[in-house]
């Protein structure tokens, strides 16, 4: 029998959908920004030209946005999605800034 999993349905379904869409759009954007920042900073540190690092950062950022957007809707526990996206995004962006401060 295929494994069925239930997504937390407590509370109003409308509120739940709003929270999920919010996580996908806002959390996803923040996370994508973080991926972008850390990629650009690390590739710059590795000696890549700025606009090359920027292009690869953008590419990874957009693809990461797509993946976490889909994951947000597939994930079982929404609080975990919010936690991963916000803290992960902040951590990645912070690392980007830290690498930059070390380079410039």
């Amino acid at each position: 029998m295929p494994r069925t999993f239930t997504i937390d349905t407590s509370g109003s379904p409308r509120l739940h959908i709003a929270a999920r869409v919010g996580a996908a759009v806002l959390g996803g954007y923040g996370f994508a920004w973080g991926i972008n920042a850390v990629t650009m900073a690390l590739l710059s540190a590795a000696g890549l030209e700025f606009h090359d690092a920027e292009f690869l950062g953008n590419l990874l950022g957009v693809l990461a946005f797509l993946v976490v957007f889909l994951w947000t809707f597939a994930a079982r526990r929404l609080w975990r999605v919010w936690a991963v996206l916000t803290s992960g995004g902040a951590l990645l962006a912070g690392t980007g800034s830290w690498v930059q401060s070390w380079l410039v």
Partner: peptide, 18 residues
């Protein structure tokens, strides 16, 4: 992306851009 959606070079990573 770099101009509108993720303007990192103008904001967070302005230092690297400069």
């Amino acid at each position: 992306a770099s101009t509108y959606y993720f303007p990192l070079g103008e904001t967070q990573l302005h230092g690297l851009h400069e």
